[in-house]
Structures are given as structure tokens and as C-alpha cells.
């Protein structure tokens, strides 16, 4: 069973549909004790940085989420979910979960480069355990990004190059939306969900 962290804001309909398509059951994690029912967690990509973190504080999920990730539960952060794993963000004032020692930054607007970065872009993979291809197209919708760091395994170029995928121990973070990235995205979700 995969637990989807509930920030109380956006809808996670497509993530759950996509998981179902790759034969993974999911439940929503609304309270700390829900973590005992799941083997893996997904932090979905909906809402704003501060809203999501404030909601985690209010539902008392904040500390238990940090604990289960520290204890090694496989965790997938999607879009905002990836950014929440960082220390902080230019989008807000709240402290991130701090598993990635980075500050999330805003994409700069440049001519021919509207922000949000929206659409299908190429990801080039290197040393990835989850992506078995050299490159592929995935669907992005975001205005903030994580720099390229040691644990970056996928890179995408837009107004600058940024981390499209990060893999660090039990954590996998992707800036794109696998649930909207057609076959490539389903494949990734299937691999993340394998063996549960």
C-alpha cells in the first residue's frame, strides 16, 4: 500500500488514477497513525510551499513524516513534493523538511521562456536506479526549481539547467508530473511501486 500525503489543498485524483493503472493501491495519509498502514509514501505536487508545510503542521503530520523518511521508508516527491524535501524555498517562508540541503529557487523569465515552465521537456538521466533509459520526455508545470546537486540523476534544460530527478537513499524526487507524462510516467510510477 502506498500512502499519499494529504496537504489538504489540491486534488490528487490523477496520481491515484495513475497508481491504479500500474496496479498499486493507495490511501491518503491524513493523520500520523496512517503511516502504519503503508510501505511507501508519495508527496504529491499540488499547492504552494508554505500552504503545504503549514497544513502538515496543523495535521500533526510534519514530525511523523520526517521520522518515517529518516527511518528509510521509500518516498517519492512529485513537483512541489520534491521541493518540500529541500531546506527552504524562494516561494515562501516556511522551513522545508530538510532532506535536501538546498534552497528552491524561482525560474527567471526570459524571452521565449514563459514561466511557469509548462509542457513536455527532455530529461537526461545519469546514474539512476529508477530510470533505465538515457533520456525521455516528461510533463512539467512549475515556476520553482532545485539546482543540480550531487544526488541529481536527471537534468532538464529550460531558462537554465535544473534537477528533474533526485535520488538519495530512500528518497526519489521528480520535478515533472509522472502521473501526466504518459507511458514514461506510468513506467516510473510502476517501478517505484514495485514489490509492495
Amino acid at each position: 500500500m502506498i500512502g499519499i500525503i494529504d496537504y489538504g489543498v489540491g486534488n490528487v485524483f490523477s496520481v491515484r488514477n495513475a497508481l491504479k493503472k500500474v496496479h498499486c493501491n493507495s490511501i491518503m495519509i491524513k493523520k500520523p497513525r496512517d503511516f502504519s498502514k503503508v510501505k511507501k509514501i508519495i508527496m504529491p505536487g499540488v499547492g504552494a510551499f508554505d500552504d503545504a508545510l503549514n497544513s502538515l503542521q496543523q495535521s500533526n503530520l510534519y514530525h511523523s513524516l520526517i521520522r518515517v523518511i529518516e527511518q528509510g521508508m521509500p518516498t517519492l516527491g512529485i513537483c512541489l513534493g520534491l521541493q518540500l524535501l529541500a531546506s527552504s524555498s524562494e516561494e515562501g517562508l516556511a522551513a522545508g523538511l530538510g532532506f535536501i540541503q538546498q534552497r528552491v529557487q524561482k525560474l527567471n523569465y526570459q524571452p521565449h521562456m514563459p514561466v511557469p515552465h509548462m509542457g513536455w521537456n527532455k530529461v537526461e538521466f545519469n546514474n539512476s536506479k529508477i530510470f533505465d533509459c538515457k533520456q525521455g520526455y516528461y510533463y512539467f508545470v512549475h515556476s520553482f526549481y532545485l539546482d543540480i546537486i550531487e544526488s541529481t540523476t536527471g537534468v532538464t534544460a529550460y531558462s537554465q539547467r535544473f534537477s528533474a530527478a533526485v535520488e538519495k537513499e530512500n528518497i526519489l524526487g521528480v520535478q515533472f508530473h509522472p502521473e501526466k507524462s504518459g507511458v514514461n510516467g506510468l513506467k516510473m510510477l510502476g517501478r517505484f511501486g514495485e514489490c509492495i
Partner: peptide
């Protein structure tokens, strides 16, 4: 559609 099609 959203149950079967995984693009925007």
C-alpha cells in the same frame, strides 16, 4: 477519460 489517459 482521466482513468485511462495520463496526459494533461
Amino acid at each position: 477519460v482521466a482513468r485511462e489517459v495520463f496526459i494533461p
